[in-house]
Simulated assay, not measured.
Amino acid sequence: MLNNWLKITVLALFLSACSSYKQNILFKSDQLTAPDPKKLELNSNRIIEIGDYLTLEVFTKNGEKIIDPDFQLANTNINSERLRPKLKYLVRNDGFVKAPMVGEVELQGKTLHEAEEILQKEYEKFYKNSFVNINFLNKRVIVLGSAGGQVIPLENENTTLVEVIALSGGIDNYGKGHNIRILRDNAAFVVDLTTIEGYQSGNIMMEPGDVVYIEPVRRPFSEFIRENGQVISIFTSLVSLVAVLISVR
């Protein structure tokens, strides 16, 4: 009788562990396919969108200060560079950015190069031979799963999946290299990096807002034991007590 009861209890614990395991897996789907790199080819020039944050630097003399070929400006501008605030400029819902001196400028839908040309013309009203440099501040990819939760900035416009994974710390012994899911807008893909063929077809360019999920290798029973250690300890004590009482009889 006692043996049967113990078997039923162990089975219940195992099923509970499996249930806990399944709850910890994200983005489950039976319809995921490998990405088609040809269909996902990106324009190397990202477009400025509503909600983007931009950095803006304006120089005179066609940007001579940036390269300073004769090293004549380095010493004289150290303190002024330290005092200059590092500002970010929001692309508002109407597509405009409020820039110093020139005021409202519409930049939505423009590439960085196009935006720089527009602002250079605006600043020509104040400075001769102006030079403008713009960069994104908030283009990023989210990495979840075995690597934890990380937000990886897309500093390079041609950042690949493998680069993003490397920046997040790589795939350790707790990650499934054959089950990497990419969520992009309304589409989802699965990538297998354990084979050369999978790498060649799956190492796609990342887009801002992509979610990369590296499914973790889970150990259901050991995780259940760790998460419910106190309950199991009490249960074990009760079983031992019952066994002693039965043996006394």
Rank of each mutant, 00 (worst) to 15 (best):
I165M: 00
K128H: 09
K98G: 11
N179T: 09
K88E: 14
L54E: 06
S233W: 10
S44G: 07
E124W: 11
D192E: 06
A188M: 12
R218Y: 09
E157M: 07
N129R: 15
K98E: 14
N62G: 12
T60C: 05
N129V: 05
I8K: 07
L90Y: 03
R84G: 03
V151N: 09
I152Q: 02
R249H: 13
E207P: 07
N4V: 03
M205G: 13
P35W: 02
K86E: 14
T160W: 01
S44Y: 10
S168D: 02
L183R: 13
R226W: 11
N43I: 06
F14G: 05
E49Q: 14
E223T: 13
Y174T: 08
R84F: 06
I246K: 02
P37A: 03
V141P: 01
L107Q: 00
V91W: 00
S222V: 08
L83S: 14
V58Q: 04
L144D: 00
N186F: 10
N158I: 07
E104D: 15
N135V: 06
S146E: 01
K121G: 06
E227P: 02
E41M: 09
Y213C: 05
L241S: 13
K110H: 09
R249M: 12
L2T: 06
Q31R: 14
G148A: 00
V191N: 00
Y123G: 01
F126V: 15
